[in-house]
Design a protein around this nucleic acid. Structure first.
Lengths: 213, 213
DNA sequence: GTCTATAAAGGGATAGAC
DNA sequence: GTCTATCCCTTTATAGAC
C-alpha cells in the first residue's frame, strides 16, 4: 500500500500487519465466539481480503491462538502487588481495581477469554493447569502468610481468587445484562465506581482485612 | 416406535419427544455455543435423525429459544426468599445456597445462559430489560428496606446481585478453570462447600448483615 | 410421525495472476 | 505481499417415500 509514510523493513511491516489483524480479530471473536467468527468477518474487520489472513495466520485456529496468547500476558500479570511484605488491604484493593480497569478498557479481551473457558478451554488447558495454577499457588501462600500473621480472617485463598475474578470480570462478560438491569446505554464512571466500591467492601470486610501495623 | 409401553395420545407423545430433545440439546449448546452446535450433533444427542428435529422445531434458532425458555423459568424463581418480612441473613444465605445448588446440578443450563449473555443476548434482550429488571428492582427495594431498618450496611443492592450471580455461576461456567487451579478431576462436596462458605462470608460480613431482632 | 436422500447456502482454505 | 476466483467440505433445511 503506497503513501504509508516511512519505508519499513519487510519484517517490521509484517509485524505491523499481524498486530492490526490481531487487534481487529479480538472484538469479532468476543462477539461471535470461536465457531461463530467467520474468516470473512475477521477479514472485513481488518479491512483485508480473506486470503491475506491465511497468508499471515495459516488457519483460523492459529489466528485464534495468537489472539488468546496476546490476552494471556496481560491477564496473568495483574496479581503483581500480592507480595509477602505488602499491606493486604492495599494489595487486594489494587488487585480489584486493576481487574475492574481491565474489564472496562478491554471488555472484548475478557469475553474472548470467557468464551474459551466456557467451551472447556480446548486451547488453554495446559496454561490453566500450568502457569495459572502455579501463579495462584504462589499468591495463595502469600495470603496464608497474612492469615497466619493475623492480618485477616482465615479464608480459602484459591476460592477467594475465584470470587474476585468472577465479580470483576462480570462487568465485561455480562455487560449486556448489567446494562439492562441498570437501564443504562453503557457502563460509565458511575457504574464502575459503584461496582468497584461494592467488591472492595465485600472482600475487605468479608475477609476481615486489617491495615498492616 | 413399537414397544414403548402404554399407548399415549398423540399430543402427549409429541410433548414427551419435545422434552427429550430439549434435555439432550442443553449440554450440546452448553459445550459448543450456539454457532458451534450443529443440528447433526443435536440430533445424535437425542438419538434421532436430523430431519426429526426440524419436524419438532422448525429451525435451529427455534430449538435454541425453547432451550433458553426452559432455563429461564428456573433461573428467575431463585430469589423467592428475599421478601420484606424475612431475616436478611437467612434470605441471603438461602439465595446463595440455591444459586450454588443450581450451578452444581445444572451446570449446562448455566453455560447456555452465559453463552447467550456473552454474545449480547440476541434472544433474551427483552427478558433482561423486562422481567429481570423488574424482579431485581423489586428485590432491591426489599434490601433497601433492610438497610433503612439498620439490619445491614448501606450497599448498592443491584451491584450486590451482580456480585452474587457472578460468584455463584462461576462454579458452573468456569468449572474447567476452577478444576485446573484446584487440581481436581471434578467439583465435589468439598469444593462446593468451601466455595459456598466463602461467598456467604463475603456477602454477610461484607454487608454487615445482622440477624433480625 | 419417522426416515433417507438431496438441495441450497455458507465456510475454510488454496491457486495463481499481479 | 496482495488480491480474485474457486475448490471442496460442512451445514441448515426440505422433499418425499414409508
Amino acid at each position: 500500500m503506497a503513501g504509508k509514510g516511512a519505508i519499513l523493513p519487510r519484517e517490521q511491516l509484517r509485524q505491523e500487519t499481524e498486530q492490526r489483524i490481531l487487534r481487529a480479530a479480538e472484538p469479532v471473536f468476543a462477539e461471535a465466539g470461536y465457531a461463530g467468527a467467520t474468516m470473512a468477518a475477521l477479514a472485513a474487520a481488518a479491512s483485508l481480503p480473506k486470503a491475506n489472513l491465511h497468508y499471515y495466520f495459516h488457519t483460523k485456529e492459529a489466528l485464534y491462538r495468537a489472539v488468546l496468547d496476546n490476552i494471556l500476558t496481560v491477564w496473568l500479570s495483574a496479581t503483581d502487588r500480592i507480595v509477602p511484605d505488602g499491606d493486604p488491604a492495599r494489595a487486594f484493593s489494587h488487585y480489584i481495581r486493576t481487574k475492574m480497569t481491565l474489564s472496562r478498557l478491554r471488555p472484548q479481551a475478557s469475553k474472548v477469554f470467557a468464551n474459551e473457558i466456557l467451551r472447556g478451554a480446548p486451547q488453554l488447558h495446559s496454561v490453566l493447569g500450568g502457569a495459572l495454577r502455579s501463579l495462584v499457588a504462589e499468591k495463595s501462600r502469600v495470603i496464608e502468610g497474612w492469615i497466619a500473621q493475623g492480618l485477616m480472617d482465615p479464608v480459602e485463598p484459591r476460592h477467594l481468587f475465584f470470587a474476585i475474578w468472577a465479580m470483576t470480570q462480570t462487568y465485561a462478560d455480562f455487560d449486556v445484562q448489567i446494562r439492562a438491569v441498570l437501564d443504562v446505554d453503557r457502563l460509565g464512571d458511575r457504574e464502575f465506581s459503584a461496582g468497584t466500591a461494592l467488591i472492595e467492601r465485600l472482600v475487605l470486610r468479608g475477609c476481615g482485612v486489617r491495615p498492616a501495623g
